[in-house]
Design a protein around this nucleic acid. Structure first.
Length: 395
DNA sequence: TCTGGGGTCCTAGGACCC
DNA sequence: TCTGGGGTCCTAGGACCC
């Protein structure tokens, strides 16, 4: 028995949040986004879209297209509040909810919909319930796996409900332009088009005839896509996943292109302390520090350094980032700097990298020390010892 | 005022160990 | 001896998503 998976997508979420704050914005051309030298449109209202404004578009271009565009700065704190209300609402139907981003989630509605004679009617009430609680609009895709549910929620906006059944999903999915397929971006779409693939249906034909060019082009992703275009795919909703964040990074476009080393120092310091603050908030330490540089030609470069003892200390991160910069900077004008901490370890089961002779950083507890010493002697090589394991065994 | 900032996953090569 | 593989970790870059 296949599952019933839904994908729920909040329509023009950031702008909708601004409308909730200030209802006079409704029906106006509104864009949310930064308005600095590197500003782009994050989200825009449907009215703005009529003028050709799109998300991702440079703000100055959006203004060219729509001179009376109302621009609102991003207010993540407020959006976060509404986002949580949205998830809580979905959770009131089932606990099997997977948050995909601030404005979308997947949910396993098998139990919710299995005895429902009128699923469309039910989902309309669901939408109305969400609106009554939060004033948010959503589109819903319903199918047997996450991919089709996602494509479904994208099919009709705003307030759409699209059900993709095994017997008829092809009718809806196959005519869709290949560039609008989830997972196919602006690099792969033209490559596929160069093989005559215009739609998802074309891609399905090629894949089901075992086309080697497409196989090579997509790599491992080929097998996922093969499932997708044939109506199969991942239907696991990760609702109590213990997965946590894998990297914490921040970057900034400089006020002006610069080769001023002192300015770089100051910016890196600020970025490093921001990363440190967030790592501490997440109770994470990291072993890899990555410096990102983007030059005036938009060429990005990353240089990474992995250290022995994980850290989330601002000065540590700053100094490592500076080390990397010193090693690789060649005096070019730069546009953007970034610092990322990865290889993260949770503080509560912090791994203490130790050798037989080096356990200065060990917990002060003497029992732990003895135990670690003993383990290392028996293994006679460096090893990872988790404090949580030690505590268990030490009892 | 030309083109954000937060992430994830994949690939491919090299170092190193057994 | 002129030629191993398996496994892990690291680095750098690229593609994609929101």
């Amino acid at each position: 028995m296949s599952k019933i998976i839904v994908h729920i997508d909040l329509n023009y979420f950031f702008v909708r949040c601004e409308e909730i704050k200030d209802p006079t914005l409704q029906g106006q051309p509104v864009a949310v986004g930064h308005q600095g030298r590197a500003g782009i449109v994050s989200t825009c209202s449907y009215k703005a879209r009529e003028y050709g404004v799109k998300s991702g578009m440079p703000m100055f271009q959006a203004i060219e297209k729509c001179p009376n565009l109302i621009i609102k700065p991003v207010d993540f704190d407020f959006y976060g509040v509404l986002s949580r209300e949205f998830i809580l609402y979905v959770l009131s139907f089932t606990k099997k909810v997977e948050v995909a981003s601030v404005d979308e989630c997947y949910a396993d509605f098998s139990d919710v919909l299995k005895n429902e004679k009128d699923p469309i009617g039910f989902l309309k009430k669901f939408q109305k319930g969400l609106f009554d609680k939060t004033k948010l609009y959503c589109s819903i895709g319903v199918s047997t796996n996450k991919f089709l549910a996602k494509m479904g929620s994208d099919y009709k906006k705003p307030n759409g409900i699209t059900i993709l059944r095994q017997k008829d999903f092809k009718k809806i999915i196959y005519p869709i332009q290949i560039a609008n397929m989830y997972g196919i971006g602006k690099k792969t779409a033209p490559r596929l088009q160069s093989y005559g693939i215009k739609t998802i249906g074309d891609l399905a034909d090629k894949i089901n005839s075992d086309d080697n060019d497409i196989k090579n082009l997509l790599g491992k992703f080929y097998f996922t896509v093969k499932d997708w275009v044939n109506g199969k795919g991942d239907d696991e909703i990760k609702y109590d996943s213990d997965e946590s964040v894998k990297s914490i990074g921040t970057s900034t476009t400089l006020p002006n292109d610069s080769n001023d080393y002192e300015e770089f120092r100051n910016v890196l310091k600020m970025l490093s302390f921001d990363v440190s603050r967030r790592a501490k908030k997440e109770n994470k330490l990291g072993k890899t520090i990555t410096l990102t540089l983007k030059d005036t030609n938009f060429i990005s470069q990353t240089k990474a350094l992995t250290i022995k003892n994980p850290t989330n200390n601002g000065n540590d991160i700053f100094n490592y980032a500076l080390d990397i910069l010193e090693k690789c900077y060649d005096g070019r004008l730069m546009r953007l700097l970034g610092v990322t901490l990865s290889n993260l370890i949770d503080i509560k089961d912090i791994a203490i990298q130790m050798t037989f002779f080096d356990y200065k950083d060990a917990e002060e507890d003497s029992k732990t020390k003895l135990l670690i010493n003993d383990l290392n002697r028996r293994l006679s090589k460096p090893m990872l010892i988790r404090a949580s394991q030690i505590n268990k065994k030490g009892e």
